[in-house]
């Protein structure tokens, strides 16, 4: 009689209880799930369908008085045949590939080094994760100063190490360095995130596996390749997925650092999309652009998640 469920059931107001009594479990389940489904439809699915519809029109959100025309596939063909779009895709791919590569290599190495017991371990971990706690706006402005050819530390460091005069080159200016400059900043900021995920993976490996390997006289190198890496791989792949999705959307930090320049060198697709949608107000065109990017990310992410599941099943 004092079961909490019974108490809760008795607390249900009688009229409500009477109405629910005739409903099946499935119907009650639907009642509970309905608000979530409604919200999902309203916030995600409806805007997606609306965006698809807009992508076939010349609609401009800032010109409500203009007649909206159905333009068929024109927006899509314009985007896909525009050399600038492909150049922006290349810039995005360069940013994605290199940031993820550096972050995975450095993040995993840091996690592996920190996954040992030594004095000051906690303090060191806290210091390493500091950059990812900063706002991208702060990081963007901060690195703009670091990259400044006359007062920036980066140029002075290069001068000290390589002997190249500090004011003779600009990391954010012409000369081909800008693409690498944004990769460096993103790597500095987000490597700690990858490190934390890898650390979780490394700490989830039971010690007895290593002990068994020691008994079998497996070398450290072999232990790394046959135990550490395979068992931490699902975590590593998860980190790659998170960083991939995040960096595909990269906007704030790069806007602050380069504004997409010099020329279009660091004009990532997300920056271009924002300009089309909210500066030029070509809503129809921007909708088509967004759908193309959505399909690209969704497709790549689906393939990747399948691969991730296979790795987990191993």
């Amino acid at each position: 009689m004092h079961n909490p469920i019974d108490i809760a059931a008795r607390a249900t107001p009688r009229p409500v209880a009477r109405r629910l009594r005739g409903l099946s479990d499935r119907a009650i389940a639907w009642i509970f799930v309905a608000p979530t489904i409604f919200l999902l439809l309203a916030i995600n699915i409806f805007p997606l369908i609306w965006t698809i519809r807009l992508s076939f029109t010349n609609y401009a959100a800032n010109r409500p008085n203009r007649e909206v025309e159905w333009v068929g596939l024109r927006n899509y063909s314009r985007i896909l045949t525009d050399a600038d779009t492909w150049a922006n895709m290349q810039s995005t791919a360069h940013f994605l590939i290199w940031t993820i590569t550096f972050q995975v290599v450095i993040g995993f190495t840091l996690a592996w080094l920190i996954n040992r017991k030594f004095k000051g371990n906690d303090l060191l971990t806290t210091l390493i994760v500091l950059p990812m706690m900063l706002s991208p706006a702060v990081v963007g402005n901060f690195w703009t100063f670091l990259y400044q050819p006359q007062i920036g530390l980066v140029n002075y460091a290069v001068e000290a190490v390589a002997g190249i005069p500090a004011s003779s080159f600009s990391m954010l200016g012409p000369g081909g360095w800008a693409r690498w400059a944004i990769v460096i900043v993103d790597t500095w900021m987000w490597t700690p995130f990858v490190m934390l995920i890898c650390l979780a993976g490394l700490r989830s490996i039971p010690d007895y596996i290593y002990e068994a390997a020691e008994v079998d006289r497996a070398s450290k190198w072999r232990q790394f390749w046959t135990i550490t890496l395979p068992m931490a791989l699902p975590f590593l792949m998860l980190a790659v997925l998170f960083r991939g999705i995040e960096n595909f959307k990269m906007f704030d930090m790069v806007t602050l650092l380069t504004g997409g320049g010099p020329g279009n060198e660091t004009l990532l697709t997300s920056i271009d999309l924002k300009r089309e949608a909210f500066e030029k107000w070509r809503t129809g065109y921007a909708s088509a652009y967004a759908i193309i990017l959505f399909v690209t990310v969704f497709g790549l992410a689906s393939i990747y998640v399948k691969a991730l599941n296979k790795v987990k099943e191993r």
Binding site: D84, G173, P174, G261, P262, G263, N264, E279, K280, R282
Partner: peptide, 18 residues
């Protein structure tokens, strides 16, 4: 705004990026 973005792109690409 569309006209301006076009000129920004073309001018920066030539003047700054070379």
């Amino acid at each position: 705004a569309s006209l301006l973005q076009a000129s920004q792109k073309r001018f920066h690409d030539y003047v700054v990026a070379g």
